[in-house]
Simulated scan of single mutants.
Amino acid sequence: MTSNNSPHPYVGMWVTADGFIRQELLPDGRYDEARGKRRSAYTGSYTVTGTHIDYLDDTGFTATGDVRDGVLYHEHLILYRQNEQPLPRAV
């Protein structure tokens, strides 16, 4: 949260380009990650320090992420703000 009680700018839905993984950063410091048709595949808490995000899953494992140029690099995943994914390239 920011000092004026407005949500952190990273709060919201982040998705992979194919939409398979959807990670919602909630304003209360919790996250909910869906994978395919599996809702709430991973849930837990997160903290933001600058552009770095530390995750603590409810099962106890940890992960990290960094936001660079509006893109969330979460471990091996690349996530974009919902509705801000790059358009698929024409083949």
Rank of each mutant, 00 (worst) to 15 (best):
R68A: 10
H8Y: 04
S40D: 12
Q23V: 08
H8L: 03
D28Q: 05
Y55F: 14
L87D: 12
G65C: 04
N4Y: 06
A34Y: 02
H76L: 09
I21F: 08
R89P: 10
E33K: 13
D28V: 05
G12Q: 00
T2S: 10
R38N: 12
T2P: 05
R39H: 09
L77Y: 12
G70N: 07
L25D: 01
H74T: 05
G70M: 06
T64L: 05
P7V: 02
Y31M: 00
Y10N: 06
R89Q: 11
H52N: 14
D28T: 08
T2C: 08
E33M: 14
S3T: 14
R38Q: 11
T43M: 07
R39T: 12
E24P: 00
L87I: 09
R81A: 09
H76P: 07
A17Q: 12
F20I: 15
N4D: 13
N4Q: 09
I53V: 13
A90V: 09
D57V: 05
D58G: 03
G12V: 04
Q23E: 14
L79E: 03
H52T: 14
A17N: 12
G12S: 03
P88I: 00
D69A: 15
T64R: 14
V91Y: 12
R89V: 10
H76A: 13
Y46H: 06
L25N: 03
Q82D: 12
Y55N: 02
N4L: 08
E33Q: 14
D54M: 07
T51C: 01
Y55D: 11
F61S: 11
L77T: 03
M13Q: 14
G50I: 04
T43G: 07
N5H: 11
D58S: 15
I53Y: 03
A34W: 08
Y73M: 09
W14T: 02
R39L: 11
W14P: 01
S40E: 09
Y80F: 15
L72H: 01
V67A: 01
S6L: 10
D57Y: 06
R68C: 00
E75D: 13
L56H: 13
L77D: 11
G12C: 02
M13K: 13
R81E: 01
P86L: 04
Q85F: 00
G70Y: 03
Y80I: 00
D57T: 03
T2Y: 06
E75V: 11
S40P: 01
S45M: 08
G70E: 04
T59F: 11
G29S: 05
A90T: 14
D66N: 13
L72D: 02
R89D: 07
Y46L: 10
L25C: 02
G36N: 04
P88R: 03
Y46Q: 04
R22Q: 13
L72G: 02
P9I: 08
T64Y: 06
T62P: 01
D54E: 12
F61T: 15
V91R: 15
V48D: 02
L25R: 06
G60T: 01
L87T: 13
L26P: 02
E24F: 10
K37A: 12
D18E: 05
A17W: 03
Y73R: 03
Q85D: 00
T43N: 12
S45R: 14
R22V: 11
T47H: 07
R81S: 07
D57I: 01
T59R: 13
Y55R: 04
G50S: 04
S45A: 11
Y73S: 08
Q85L: 05
W14A: 00
L77M: 15
D58A: 15
Q82S: 11
R81C: 01
T51L: 07
E84I: 01
